[in-house]
Design a binder for these strands. Structure first.
Lengths: 185, 185
DNA sequence: ACGGTTCTTGACCGATCGGTCAAGTGCCCC
DNA sequence: GGGGCACTTGACCGATCGGTCAAGAACCGT
């Protein structure tokens, strides 16, 4: 299944044939359809497992930190680190949301993961430490930052995940502006 | 070509066959290959044209505004408005960056578009109004916010582009944090 | 050692794909 | 009106796809 994941990630889902997968594994085609219902089924399983792992990594990275802002920061760092390893899965996620059959599964997984972050943001808002905007919107803004930075700087340019995570945290918390806010913590 | 774009966007590139396109247009298959070199060629043309249009919309939205921060804001709004119309093209962009044959074209277009934004950010930094971080990184963070918010709130939930743009601007400029910075402009 | 279940093979199938091409069809210019 | 060019058609092609299945191989409890 790791092999199939790698092929899907580097070539794309459609251009990767079942024949190619089983040949790369050195097995017959029958064994594939013995363990998986179909090519689509395999892909969905890969997706589901990956989403589950990512969420687990996030939870583990956050631990039992009580401060909501720190929780968000730790979540960003954990996500970035996970996307650093497993960069192959990045493409899969992105492709899956473009095809109608896979998009629902992707959306569902994303919403579950986002729900965690939304809670932290809400906590931050009631504490008065996060601006009073729609929490879901803020959450997605943060997710967008993570995704884009991971893709461009880690995936395309191969930079260190931790450095990118530092910048992502700084941007998400304080935005672009310099000024008095720079030292307001 | 608009018809092909719509099919590609709703069904995906691979599941849309040339036969389906020409049938939907009510023409023979020959006329397709008279005007386009191949299915891939058509797709690349669609991509290139769309990127060009988006960039044009950004430039037009910014106009001759001199203030770099305002330029960034106007760029965000213009992008969001363009992604609001043309939401079909969103999927295409996302898919194109997942397949190895299309990714280079996508990256190139993205980099050109990003280069504009990088200039404004650099201007803001030398004026001391934007925090002194890597301009390319800040640019990509902003792009990530735009993409994610456009996809989730405009594309999936059908919300008004202008409202989402307001929030995107607020987040990009000032980040998540509340506090004294809230009124520092 | 043997019947039975689990697992594996790869030739094979119908469907469908992107792309070709001989055979027109209309149109314009001389 | 006729020769030539721009354009259009759809049957057709080889390739390849996802998926099936008859035929075993390997391993079991007995």
């Amino acid at each position: 299944m790791d092999f199939a994941t790698a092929r899907f990630a580097t070539q794309g889902y459609h251009p990767t044939s079942v024949a190619e997968i089983v040949q790369g594994l050195g097995v017959g085609k029958g064994v594939f359809y013995w363990y998986f219902s179909s090519k689509e089924g395999l892909f969905l399983e890969i997706l589901k497992e990956a989403q589950h792992e990512l969420r687990r990594a996030q939870r583990q990275g956050i631990g039992d930190e009580p401060d909501p802002l720190r929780r968000i920061e730790l979540g960003i760092r954990a996500s970035m680190a996970w996307l650093d390893e497993h960069r192959q899965l990045f493409n899969l996620f992105q492709f899956a949301s473009t095809e109608e059959r896979f998009a629902p599964a992707m959306r569902q997984g994303q919403e579950v993961a986002a729900a965690d972050a939304v809670r932290h943001i809400k906590d931050g808002i009631v504490e008065g430490r996060i601006r009073d905007l729609d929490p879901e919107l803020l959450t997605n803004a943060v997710l967008g930052v993570i995704n884009q930075l991971a893709r461009v700087f880690i995936h395309e340019r191969g930079e260190k995940g931790a450095d990118v995570a530092d910048a992502a945290v700084a941007f998400c918390l304080e935005g672009l502006l310099a000024g008095p806010g720079e030292h307001r913590r």
